[in-house]
Design a protein around this nucleic acid. Sequence first.
DNA 1: ATAATACCTACTGTACAAGTAGGTATTATA
DNA 2: TATAATACCTACTTGTACAGTAGGTATTAT
Lengths: 131, 131
Amino acid sequence: MISTRGRYALRVMIDIASNQGDGYVPMKEVAARQGLSLKYLEQIIPPLTGHGLIKGIQGKGGGYRLTKEPSQYNIGEILRLTEKDLAPVSCLAEGAPECERRQKCKTVALWEGLEKVTNEYLNSKTLDELL
Amino acid sequence: MISTRGRYALRVMIDIASNQGDGYVPMKEVAARQGLSLKYLEQIIPPLTGHGLIKGIQGKGGGYRLTKEPSQYNIGEILRLTEKDLAPVSCLAEGAPECERRQKCKTVALWEGLEKVTNEYLNSKTLDELL
DNA sequence: ATAATACCTACTGTACAAGTAGGTATTATA
DNA sequence: TATAATACCTACTTGTACAGTAGGTATTAT
């Protein structure tokens, strides 16, 4: 299940896209508009700036803005960065210990298929479709 | 993320299908073959018997068997019964309080679409495909 | 100098997942 | 009729992770 981290990150991206104009959007305003905790959002944002999806500038008058056109973001990349893991089962999560039943496991192909359809869906949707 | 309840339920169904022959399969044997806790499995099974997916008979020589051909079970129904919820986000879970942002929510359609593709995938797979 | 911002790190309460534990009810069989 | 083996039921436990709260530092415009 998608946690608040991914869901809030998406709402932040939508909010910035809708309000950036030609300037920078303070996270304080995003938090107020979205009814979310500023302090919590500050913990969620770093992977997005770290991977260049948004740019933040410090100091008075600072804030965030997108680095690309909304149509250039797919939802999957936003969620993969902010969500802990998008795998449908823990044994497919990154860093999961190699399962010793893997060879004879009758269900792993099912879970891999499920992961594939969800990733394809999320990668096919872009940010501008949500505005 | 699919929890152990749904994953174990699936393995139980596969194990019963593979071992029932023309008799009944004791859960104790399933637990031993699958390397799972019998006591834990006993908590997971009731919704499957309650909805008639498997039939259990008590007493010595008892156990469980399928009520239909493996090809007649779809994976989605097994998971929906044993998993707490298959919704991709908590606001789409059954019994979730009506979200007051629902009307203006820009992301709910995305989550509904994600739920749709996962349900379609899981409903399209049948138990016999896993044997 | 000050105010407003991004950015950083530690701590906390709650809920739930994943079991453990100890029973009762039912049925075949010796 | 006693016993063993099963399904079925309910309470309790433990660890972990989610969803924050809290208190700072660094940077920049005015």
